[in-house]
């Protein structure tokens, strides 16, 4: 019995640690975008390296949790949902990492007149993921709060969408950009950044279903 409890406590810590990694990925993303926009490329590359390591570690924890859930027959009723939640959250880390890599590979030139929008967008993405992690944490220990955090996720996701639209409108209406390729590239980056909050929103939708399933 003692072994069973210590196993449960360890698993609790691992899930907590996994959620911390998801949150950290968004913080690294925010910092990376700021560094990139400020032209601090060396620091930006350090962030890229950091998120690569973080993703590997998060994958390891996720696999460990899955293994334990199924081999030790834990939470038989909810383990499918827990597993799906962790898989969905993994997509947030994946998309975030890919976005930073894209900045590193393509090195898009962000004109000054939309830098502020990109910065704001990265901040709202950070907040979206932060509230998503809060919602996921609440799913495990305070289900009443899941909807409150989910509403915040939806709010910030909406703000990100607005900024995405603003950037797209600006780049295609300004005469400060010379080529179509520049405009298309900036649109692409705005869309891909917004994808992070879109993924967060879809995880929230799944969470709300999981909550209904867990209601006794």
């Amino acid at each position: 019995m003692v072994k069973f409890f210590s196993r449960m406590v360890k698993l609790e810590e691992e899930v907590k640690s996994y959620l911390y990694h998801v949150q950290r990925s968004a913080l690294i993303f925010e910092e990376a975008i700021q560094d990139y926009l400020k032209g601090e490329i060396a620091r930006f590359e350090v962030r890229l390296d950091e998120i690569g390591k973080l993703e590997n570690e998060a994958d390891r924890i996720r696999r460990t949790v899955k293994h334990k859930l199924y081999t030790h027959m834990l939470i038989p009723e909810a383990r499918g949902d827990v597993w799906e939640l962790l898989e969905s959250l993994d997509k947030v880390i994946d998309v975030t990492k890919k976005m930073i890599e894209n900045f590193s590979f393509e090195k898009p030139v962000i004109p000054d007149f939309i830098k502020e929008d990109f910065l704001n967008m990265s901040e709202y993405i950070g907040k979206t993921v932060e509230e998503l992690v809060n919602a996921a944490t609440a799913y495990f220990s305070n289900m009443n709060m899941v909807n409150d955090f989910s509403n915040k996720v939806l709010f910030y996701e909406n703000e990100v969408d607005k900024l995405e639209d603003t950037i797209k409108k600006t780049v295609f209406s300004t005469d400060k950009l010379d080529t179509l390729s520049e405009r298309i590239q900036l649109r692409y980056f705005a869309e891909k950044m917004a994808l992070i909050s879109d993924v967060a929103e879809s995880v929230c939708e799944k969470l709300s279903v999981f909550v209904i399933k867990r209601e006794i």
């Binding site: 939470i75 495990f140 220990s141």
Partner: peptide, 14 residues
């Protein structure tokens, strides 16, 4: 009790 105790899912299971 479960709604107000804020017990972790894994603990509720145990």
């Amino acid at each position: 009790y479960i709604e107000n105790s804020k017990l972790h899912l894994f603990r509720i299971d145990s």
